[in-house]
Simulated assay, not measured.
Amino acid sequence: MTTVKLGTRASTLAMTQSTTIADWLRSKHGVEVELVQISTEGDRSTEPLAGMGGQGVFVAALREALISGQIDVAVHSLKDLPTAQDERLVIAAIPSRVDPRDCLVARDGMTLGELPQGARVGTGSPRREAQLNALGLGVEVVPIRGNVDTRLAKVASGDYDAVLLARAGLLRLGRADEATELIDPLQMLPAPGQGALACECRADDVATIHLLDGLDDIDTRVAVTAERSLLAALEAGCSAPVGALAEVASGDDGDELWLRAVVGDLSGSPTIRLSATGLPSEAAAVGERLAAEMLAEGADTLVAVASPTPGR
């Protein structure tokens, strides 16, 4: 019987995500799946991500394991995956996306609007920091790193009044009820690709690519293609406060793609927020077009200030 070696980070969330993919492969194809834990630079370091060279710190070791043949599939959180394509690899499947919104976990069940002046809100994301400051709530943004348990513990202990997290992570861990508020994308757009997973394989591994065929969700792939195309065109790295969310919706003449994006300053001002529409078949072009409009409004200046080393 075929054994598929599936590479994953060792965190509880990563293992939960990878186990979902492993279970699908077992039930769909009857193959054996071995989970192979890979330690990444992002897992080993406590430095802020922006100072470590960007999102690739969570995927480089997994990609190296793929290329060397140590594993057959790498499961990534798509928002961690660099937009620059490695020709030796291919994203064979992007499963149906989980809720991409951010959420708040606050003491005493509070929402953002109920937080007192000076409340300490933890986040390690420049994107969240910029958009939170743009709301003008008078809260103090404080840095935080670590897994979901570590972050929630900061609230439980009283060190922080609240933390901002991706709702997808709480959903996958069965802890969604711990969120005290789901953040409307009108207030805070998520990271490009947030809530989606990517199953990456070697480009020449036809057998494994075929095994993952039925796992791909076309609407999710279209949406994240638009979001990541915008991010690439902005030449924005992990330290740039860029949010984007695309959705496929039914229109009068068939399905339409809607893309919203924001580029902000960490202080909350200025902020550039624009949107674009197009055909799902033109997802990459929609992202590039919206990026061009944002660059014309001065997004390049905001990206350059926030990200001294552009690119991914």
Rank of each mutant, 00 (worst) to 15 (best):
V4F: 06
L6M: 14
T8V: 11
S11L: 04
T20L: 09
I21M: 13
A22E: 10
A22M: 08
W24N: 15
W24K: 04
L25Y: 09
K28D: 13
E34A: 11
I38V: 14
S39Y: 05
T40Q: 07
G42Y: 07
T46N: 15
E47H: 15
E47Y: 11
E47I: 14
E47M: 12
P48Y: 12
P48I: 14
M52Q: 15
Q55F: 07
Q55M: 13
G56S: 12
V57H: 02
A61E: 03
E64N: 08
A65M: 01
L66W: 00
I71N: 00
D72H: 01
H76A: 02
S77N: 10
S77K: 08
L78T: 00
T83I: 06
A84N: 11
Q85F: 09
E87C: 06
R88C: 10
I91R: 05
I91C: 02
P95K: 07
R97A: 00
D102R: 10
R107T: 15
M110R: 12
L115S: 14
Q117R: 15
R127V: 14
R128M: 09
R128S: 13
A134M: 08
A134K: 09
L135V: 14
G138K: 14
V139K: 09
P143K: 12
P143H: 06
R145S: 14
G146A: 11
N147M: 05
D149W: 04
D149G: 06
D149S: 11
R151D: 03
R151V: 01
R151S: 01
D161L: 07
A162N: 13
V163C: 07
L164C: 08
A166I: 08
A166C: 10
R167W: 13
R167G: 08
G174P: 12
G174I: 14
R175T: 07
A176Q: 10
A176T: 01
E181G: 11
E181F: 09
D184L: 08
M188Y: 03
L189E: 01
L189T: 03
A191V: 02
G193H: 02
G193T: 04
Q194H: 03
A196H: 01
A198Y: 00
C199A: 04
C199E: 00
C201M: 03
R202Y: 03
V206H: 13
V206S: 05
L211R: 07
L211K: 04
L211M: 13
G214P: 02
D216E: 08
I218S: 08
T220Q: 03
R221D: 00
V222K: 03
V224H: 00
A226C: 03
R228L: 13
S229R: 15
L231S: 11
L234D: 05
A236Y: 05
A236E: 01
C238H: 06
E247F: 02
V248T: 00
V248Y: 01
S250F: 01
D253Q: 06
G254Q: 05
D255P: 12
A261E: 09
V262S: 08
V263E: 04
T271N: 13
R273E: 06
L274K: 10
L274V: 05
L274E: 10
L279W: 04
L279M: 14
E282F: 02
A284W: 04
G287V: 04
R289S: 12
A292L: 01
M294S: 10
L295E: 10
A296G: 13
E297A: 15
G298V: 08
D300G: 15
L302T: 05
V303E: 08
V303M: 06
A304V: 07
V305N: 11
S307G: 13
S307I: 09
T309H: 13
